[in-house]
Computed example of a mutant assay.
Amino acid sequence: MPPRPHRGFTLVELLIVLVIVGLTAALAVPALTDALDRRRIRHAAEALRDDLDHARLEAVTSAQAVRVMARPGIRGWAGGWMAQRGYLPLWAASSEPLDTRLRSAHSRPSLSFGPDGGTGDNQTITFCTGGKQAFALSVVIAREGRARVAPAEHDRVTSCAGRRG
């Protein structure tokens, strides 16, 4: 009787494949986590910049001051923000909260745009995630009211990474 053709895989072959898949997954997870952290930080910084631009436009078109402030709580700007003209609320950051691992650093809980669109002085709000200083981004607001997103400076990154909120 001739020998049967080989069918299937041996246990050793299956174990080798499982080890290779496990090693590949172990190497890919940190890179995926880093990419998600970068995306969270960029999303928060760009959303704040867009809302600051909107608040500035609102102040100029209405010829009234518009104030943008961090939502109350220990997380500061990382907990979201809202805008108001006088006592009239205009909008809040978004219906979904920002990622809870996000942190922020800023010396003041609010900033105001005057009827000319300016803030009166330069300000910076930095977003980061704990322990990931390389991913930090800052929203830089010029005294004329223009906002931009830029890589965070080292001292701001250190301040942000050391905060709880």
Score class of each variant (00 low, 15 high):
5 P>D: 08
5 P>H: 13
8 G>M: 00
13 E>Q: 11
13 E>M: 10
13 E>K: 08
15 L>M: 15
17 V>E: 07
18 L>D: 04
18 L>C: 13
19 V>H: 06
19 V>R: 08
20 I>A: 15
21 V>T: 12
21 V>I: 15
23 L>C: 14
23 L>A: 15
28 A>Q: 02
29 V>K: 09
29 V>M: 12
30 P>S: 04
30 P>V: 06
32 L>G: 09
33 T>V: 12
33 T>E: 03
34 D>L: 04
34 D>G: 05
36 L>I: 06
36 L>Q: 09
37 D>I: 01
38 R>K: 02
38 R>L: 02
39 R>P: 00
39 R>S: 13
42 R>P: 00
43 H>Y: 14
44 A>Q: 04
45 A>N: 02
46 E>H: 14
47 A>L: 15
48 L>M: 08
49 R>D: 02
51 D>Q: 15
51 D>F: 07
54 H>G: 05
56 R>N: 03
58 E>T: 13
61 T>C: 07
66 V>L: 09
66 V>K: 03
67 R>D: 03
69 M>T: 04
70 A>W: 05
71 R>L: 14
72 P>S: 15
73 G>S: 07
74 I>V: 05
77 W>F: 13
78 A>R: 06
79 G>Q: 12
80 G>T: 09
80 G>M: 12
80 G>Q: 09
80 G>H: 11
81 W>P: 00
82 M>F: 10
82 M>E: 14
83 A>M: 10
83 A>H: 09
85 R>C: 02
87 Y>V: 14
87 Y>I: 09
88 L>K: 11
89 P>T: 10
93 A>N: 07
94 S>V: 00
95 S>G: 03
95 S>W: 00
95 S>A: 11
95 S>D: 07
96 E>R: 10
97 P>F: 08
97 P>E: 03
106 H>K: 03
110 S>R: 02
111 L>S: 02
114 G>N: 10
115 P>V: 09
115 P>E: 13
117 G>C: 11
117 G>H: 10
118 G>M: 14
119 T>L: 11
120 G>I: 11
122 N>S: 15
124 T>S: 15
125 I>G: 05
127 F>T: 05
127 F>W: 02
128 C>Y: 09
129 T>I: 15
129 T>G: 05
130 G>S: 11
132 K>M: 07
133 Q>G: 14
136 A>N: 01
136 A>T: 01
137 L>F: 02
141 I>N: 01
142 A>Q: 10
144 E>N: 15
146 R>A: 12
147 A>K: 01
148 R>K: 11
148 R>Y: 01
148 R>S: 12
149 V>M: 07
150 A>Q: 13
153 E>G: 14
154 H>D: 10
158 T>W: 02
159 S>L: 14
159 S>P: 00
160 C>T: 08
162 G>W: 01
165 G>I: 03
165 G>Y: 06
